[in-house]
Design a protein around this nucleic acid. Structure first.
Length: 512
RNA sequence: GAUUCCGUAGCUCAGCUGGUAGAGCAAUACACUUUUAAUGUAUGGGCCCUGGGUUCGAGUCCCAGCGGGAUCACCA
C-alpha cells in the first residue's frame, strides 16, 4: 500500500543566523554542555505568580528561592551583567543576570560562553531571588542558570512599548502554518485559545451539572446522516467497504436516547467536503445534545441559560463586542417565526404558498435559485437572502416549514410547520434545534421525500438510514435536540473575524 | 470554483518612467555590573515565490504556475 505524502523533508539552505546557531550548539557540546539535557527541572513558581504576589520589602523573604523556566524573549547585555526577559506559560518577567553571581569562582565559562551567546528563543531554567529594580520593575536576580533547550531557528522579534506593537508578524500564512511560533510571539493568540477551552469547559460543566452524559459516537459512518452536506469518503481495507467521515452525529445520539439515556451530548468533530473561507474549515466542531421528555420551548430556555453562562465564563460579562457591534448575550432572547421574519423584512407573506408561487417571489426579490431544489429550500433561500443578516442581537427564529426539516416533529398547532428554531447572533446561525421527530412512520416518509429530492439531483439531500428507522420503531421518547457551532460561537466570544483564528491548526493547502 | 490584491534579509517594510539590492529591528565582533524598543562603534546577511517572454539590460513590464488574504458562490 502506497500513501501520498505531500510534505517535503526540509533540506533548504540554511540562513546565516541558522548556521551561527548550529555553530553555537556545537561549541556548547565541545565545552561538555548538553544543549538538550534530560533531567527534570524543578520549577517552583511562574512569572505571573511572582508579579501578582511580590510586594517588595514587606514579603521579599518569601521570594528568595524562586525557580523558573522559560524562553528568552529579549536581552539587554551590559558587559558583565544583563537584563533579559523570560517568558513562561503565564507571561514574562525580567531577569537580571550578573557574571559574578552565576559564576562565583574563577571559571567564567557559564557567563562568557553560555549566557553571552544565548539566543532569543532559547529555553533556560533559572534560580534566584525576586527584587525591584531602580525603575521599579519586579525582576528575578539570577543565581543559577541552566540551558534547557537550544533554539536553532530565529524567532520573529515583536516589541511592545506602552501598548504600541512593533514589527508584529502580519503574514497570516506564517501565523497559521507555524502556529507554534505564532503562539510564542503573540500573547493575544494564546489568550484566544485559552478562551476557547474555557468556553468548552463551561458548556461541559453546564451539561454535567444537569445530569447529562457525555458520549462518543462513530466518526466513520457507513451512511453519513443527520445533516445535508457533501461528505469526505474513505475506505476500510479489511472490510473492503467505503466509509464516510461524519457530517453530523445526530442520528447516533438519538439512538442513545432510544437506548434509555435521558440526556446525552457530544462535542462532535464533523467533516464536510465543501468550500473553505473565513467561516468554514473542512473539519469543525458542533456540540449536540438530546434530552428526553423535553421540547423545543424548553430547549430555547436552556440554550439562553447556557450561552449566558458561557459568556460569563469566557469574558466575565454578557455584554460583548463583535466587530464594531455591541451584542448582549443576556437571556431571554427575542423569538420570531421564520415566516414572520420574512414578512417583516420583505413585506411579503409567503405563508401557504406553493412551489411556483415561491419561485415567483424569488424572482421578484432577485434571488437566483437552483431549479432542482424543493419548497423547503426555496423558503430557506428567501430567508437567508433577506432576513438572516438582520439578527444582530441573539434571536431565535422559530417554526420552520416542514419541507426543510426532515428530522423534526410537526408543530403541535400550526399546520405545515415544525417545532424548530435556529439561533442567530450577529447575523450568523449559531445553533439549530428542534423537537425531534420520533414517529417512525412519519420519519420514513420524510426520508423518502429526501430520496426523491436526491433523484431530482439535490446532492445534499439525506440518505435513508434503515438502522435509524429500526431504532425509532422500538420507540424514542419525545426529545429535544440541538447543535451549537462551537467554532463560530468561539469567534463571537473572542471577537475573531476568521475561523482560522479560533482553530489552533486551521486546514491549509499542503506546502510544496 | 470565480473575481481581486499581495509574495524583496529571520521579522516589519522601502525600492520612482526598467540601469550594480536598501532601512529599522534581529545577527556577528568589541566596549559597558540596575537596563528596559538599553547605548556606542564596526561587520556580515538576498534563487527579489517559481518558470517562460519582451529588452542591450527585469525586483520593476507581459504571460503562465505556486502560495496566501479579501469578496462572491456552496455550506455551519
Amino acid at each position: 500500500m502506497k500513501y501520498f505524502c505531500p510534505l517535503k523533508i526540509a533540506s533548504m539552505a540554511l540562513s546565516e543566523q541558522e548556521i551561527i546557531r548550529r555553530e553555537k550548539l556545537q561549541h556548547l557540546q565541545e565545552l561538555g554542555i548538553d544543549p538538550y539535557p534530560a533531567p527534570l527541572f524543578p520549577v517552583n513558581s511562574t512569572t505571573a505568580a511572582i508579579k501578582a504576589n511580590y510586594k517588595g520589602e514587606e514579603n521579599k523573604d518569601a521570594f528568595t528561592d524562586v525557580v523558573l523556566a522559560g524562553r528568552i524573549m529579549s536581552n539587554r547585555p551590559m558587559g558583565k551583567a544583563s537584563f533579559a526577559e523570560l517568558q513562561d506559560s503565564t507571561g514574562r518577567i525580567q531577569i537580571y543576570v550578573r557574571r559574578d553571581d552565576i559564576c562565583p569562582g574563577d571559571d567564567k565559562t557559564l557567563y562568557d560562553e553560555v549566557w553571552k551567546k544565548i539566543d532569543l528563543g532559547d529555553i533556560v531554567g533559572i534560580k534566584g531571588f525576586v527584587f525591584t529594580t531602580k525603575v521599579g520593575e519586579t525582576s528575578v536576580h539570577v543565581q543559577e542558570l541552566t540551558l534547557l533547550t537550544k533554539s536553532l531557528k530565529p524567532l520573529p522579534v515583536v516589541k511592545e512599548v506602552e501598548g504600541q506593537t512593533f514589527d508584529a508578524v502580519s503574514d497570516p500564512e506564517f501565523k497559521y502554518r507555524q502556529r507554534y511560533a505564532d503562539l510564542i510571539i503573540n500573547p493575544q493568540v494564546r489568550e484566544t485559545f485559552v478562551k476557547r477551552t474555557k468556553l468548552v469547559n463551561a458548556m461541559r460543566q453546564f451539561l454535567n451539572e444537569r445530569g447529562a452524559l457525555e458520549v462518543d459516537t462513530p466518526v466513520l459512518q457507513a451512511i453519513p446522516g443527520g445533516a445535508a452536506a457533501r461528505p469526505f469518503i474513505t475506505h476500510h481495507n479489511a472490510l473492503d467497504v467505503p466509509f464516510y467521515l461524519r457530517i453530523a452525529n445526530e442520528l447516533y445520539l438519538k439512538r442513545c436516547i432510544v437506548g434509555g439515556f435521558d440526556w446525552v451530548y457530544e462535542f462532535s468533530r464533523n467533516f464536510r467536503n465543501e468550500g473553505m473561507d473565513r467561516t468554514h474549515n473542512p473539519e469543525f466542531t458542533i456540540l449536540e445534545w438530546y434530552t428526553a421528555y423535553k421540547d423545543y420551548l424548553w430547549m430555547m430556555e436552556t440554550t439562553e441559560q447556557m450561552l449566558e453562562t458561557v459568556a460569563m465564563a469566557v469574558n466575565g460579562t454578557t455584554e460583548i463586542t463583535i466587530g464594531d457591534q455591541a451584542v448582549s448575550i443576556k437571556a431571554p432572547f427575542k423569538r420570531i417565526g421564520i415566516l414572520d421574519a420574512i414578512k417583516e423584512n420583505t413585506g411579503i407573506d409567503i405563508n401557504g404558498m406553493d412551489e411556483a408561487a415561491l419561485r415567483a417571489v424569488c424572482k421578484q426579490l432577485n434571488i437566483a435559485v437552483d431549479p432542482k431544489i424543493g419548497k423547503g429550500k426555496l423558503i430557506d433561500e428567501i430567508f437567508s437572502a433577506t432576513s438572516e443578516s438582520k439578527f444582530i442581537q441573539p434571536t431565535f427564529v422559530i417554526d420552520y416549514p416542514v419541507e426543510m426539516s426532515p428530522l423534526t416533529k410537526k408543530h403541535r398547532s400550526k399546520a405545515g410547520l415544525v417545532e424548530r428554531f435556529e439561533l442567530y447572533i450577529n447575523g450568523k446561525e449559531i445553533a439549530n434545534a428542534y423537537s425531534e421527530l420520533n414517529d417512525p412512520i412519519d420519519q420514513r416518509e420524510r426520508f423518502e421525500e429526501q430520496a426523491a429530492l436526491m433523484e431530482r439531483g439535490d446532492d445534499e439531500a439525506m440518505f435513508i438510514d434503515q438502522d435509524f428507522l429500526r431504532a425509532l420503531e422500538y420507540g424514542m421518547p419525545p426529545t429535544a435536540g440541538i447543535g451549537i457551532g462551537i467554532d463560530r460561537l468561539c469567534m463571537m466570544m473572542t471577537n475573531q473575524p476568521s475561523i482560522q483564528d479560533v482553530l489552533l491548526f486551521p486546514q491549509m493547502r499542503p506546502e510544496a
